[in-house]
Each structure stands twice: as structure tokens, then as C-alpha cells.
């Protein structure tokens, strides 16, 4: 009897391991930070792009929804998502905060002149230090947050048609 228990438990143990391996196979092994959805952003303290001003949590709490978008003039995929940002500008319920990442001011301005300026507010992050505070690890990356600064969704890589639709439905619920 005792032997049987030991044998069954050893078999079950290995069965469990193989099962975990099997499920693990179908999981994506590339990491992203989407599991941070539901966390609250804190200690926001960004420099305004052109004025000698600070952008803080208070500025974001005013709006029902915010999209924080990290972009740069040297970033190719940023150009791909730009049209969607421009379309979001027409939505009322959302405030677009663009954070200019590790960029030269002139290039950034040229970029906005050329492709249009979708942002309600622009901050600058000259050395990229603020990106860490917002959990950004590569650009373009955008975070959709609500009034309480809770992360609703993270968009890693350029915003697509699908993401655009998602944002529009989310903010008009």
C-alpha cells in the first residue's frame, strides 16, 4: 500500500512537470511589461518641452483619460503610428501627452512640423531618465491611463489600427 502511494506520487510528479513544459511551450517567451496593467503611476515629474514648467500628476488628473506616448524624431516606427495619434486628437475624452525621448529639440520640432502635432502637451526626456519611472523600455511605447492614473493598457511598439479602435472604445464607454 505504502509502495503504491510512493509510486503514484512519483508518477504524478513527473506528469505534472511534463504538463507544465507542455503548456509553457505555447507561451510567448518574449517578455513585455503588459502585466503591469492595473498598477498606478506615481511620482510623475516631467519637464515641459518648450516652457520652463513641470508636468505632474495634477496635470493628468484633470482629464478622464490620458495617453502617454514616447516618441522621437530618430525613431522610424514612430512615423507609422503618427497618423493614429492625429486621429486621436479629434477625440474629446482623451488627453495626449507626448514625451520626446533622447532627441534634439530642432529635430523634434521639424518632425512635428512635417507630420503634424497630435499632442495636447509635450514633455521632454533628454537623457531618457523619465522613461524608467514610467516603465518604458523601448520606443515607441504608449500607456493609456484613466483619471486615477491607473494603467489601462500598454502599447509596446507602434500604435496600430486595432490599438486605435481599442482606445476609442475604451474612452467612450
Amino acid at each position: 500500500m505504502k509502495k503504491k502511494i510512493i509510486k503514484t506520487s512519483i508518477t504524478l510528479f513527473f506528469l505534472f512537470i511534463t504538463l507544465v513544459f507542455f503548456i509553457g511551450l505555447n507561451k510567448n517567451s518574449v517578455y513585455d511589461t503588459t502585466n503591469l496593467v492595473g498598477e498606478k503611476l506615481t511620482h510623475i515629474n516631467l519637464n515641459h518641452f518648450s516652457k520652463n514648467l513641470k508636468i505632474t500628476e495634477q496635470d493628468l488628473k484633470k482629464n478622464n483619460f490620458n495617453l502617454i506616448n514616447f516618441w522621437s524624431s530618430w525613431c522610424g516606427p514612430c512615423r507609422d503610428e503618427h497618423p493614429f495619434l492625429l486621429r486621436l486628437k479629434d477625440e474629446n475624452n482623451i488627453n495626449l501627452l507626448g514625451v520626446n525621448f533622447k532627441d534634439k529639440k530642432n529635430n523634434a520640432l521639424k518632425f512635428l512640423r512635417e507630420f503634424g502635432n497630435p499632442y495636447d502637451l509635450i514633455a521632454e526626456d533628454k537623457f531618457g531618465k523619465n522613461s524608467v519611472n514610467l516603465g518604458i523600455y523601448g520606443i515607441p511605447e504608449s500607456i493609456l491611463i484613466n483619471k486615477d492614473l491607473i494603467i489601462i493598457k500598454k502599447f509596446i511598439g507602434p500604435i496600430t489600427e486595432e490599438d486605435f479602435k481599442y482606445i476609442v472604445t475604451a474612452i467612450n464607454k
Partner: peptide
């Protein structure tokens, strides 16, 4: 890491 991801969806 495989176990935490499969069992708790946490990397």
C-alpha cells in the same frame, strides 16, 4: 521561470 509563468502568469 517556466513554472511561474505557466502557473501564475508571472515572469
Amino acid at each position: 521561470p517556466i513554472f511561474t509563468e505557466v502557473l501564475t502568469n508571472h515572469k
